[in-house]
Amino acid sequence: MDLQTLLQQMINGITLGSTYALIALGYTMVYGIIKLINFAHGDVYMLGAFVGLAVVLMGANIWLAIFVAMLACLCVAVTIERVAYRPLRSSIRLAPLISSIGVSIFLQTLMTLLKGPQPVGFPQVVTNTIYTVGLVKISTVQIIILVVAAVLMIGLQLVIKRTKMGKAMRATSEDLRTASLMGINVNAVISFTFALGAVMAAAGGVLVGMYFNSVFPLMGVMAGLKAFCAAVVGGIGSVPGAVLGGLFLGVAEVLGVAAGLGSYRDAIAFGLLILVLLFRPSGLLGQPEQRKV
């Protein structure tokens, strides 16, 4: 592989990786706060793609589509949390997990019933010109993805580090009970976390739908799992870790395919996941777990 191909593949990998990162943020934040692997998150992403598609079909531009998808997914995620996870907060760890799988099956079947199982194409909403920068080519769609992802991630970082709600989120993820003793409305914080995660995933859904030109009810399954891997690789519970993990897996996947491992595409992310876990059990940027007696 010469330098030009390598750089080109890096650009493609970073584009794919930033969509993984957008989804991974939702997994990592929710896990950081209530230690729940939210398997319905991938389906929230799928819903975002469908809402975005519907808005675009009504003749709106891509920005409006992303915005509406975000709002819709926010409502859905907060409702899911309220109905399926909140009653289970004090029960055994596996109970909300099973509940999230139930929600995931529900959403997938619902969308299959409404839209049919076949992939739907995404209309061309932006004129896709290809720019040549030095050695590499980059398309308008890729630029949009990179810019939107970067803006959202910086925004999220600002929310977490600079706002009062962000401070409450950090306190809650440190220790839920102590945070509630300090007068933090823990339920509101958890709802807010789900909402933030869903907003990121919705944007990711619309962008991926546009990038790969296909939206289908099961699109959240593999993307969600890989994004979840990304969150774990980066260190689950860590926001910069999710971004790093997403980019890492995206680049690795694209380079792997370019190196002729195309048929093993889906295994690359999981192989890396196992390797990282074996050498750094708490992920690249995660805090090592303390074992207390």
């Binding site: 109905v83 399926a84 029960s91 099973i98 509940s99 139930g102 929600v103 099956i105 529900f106 619902l110």
Partner: peptide, 11 residues
């Protein structure tokens, strides 16, 4: 769909 709902409800 009912299967999914059943899982959530049972939990």
């Amino acid at each position: 769909m009912m299967y999914g709902t059943l899982m959530v409800a049972m939990m």
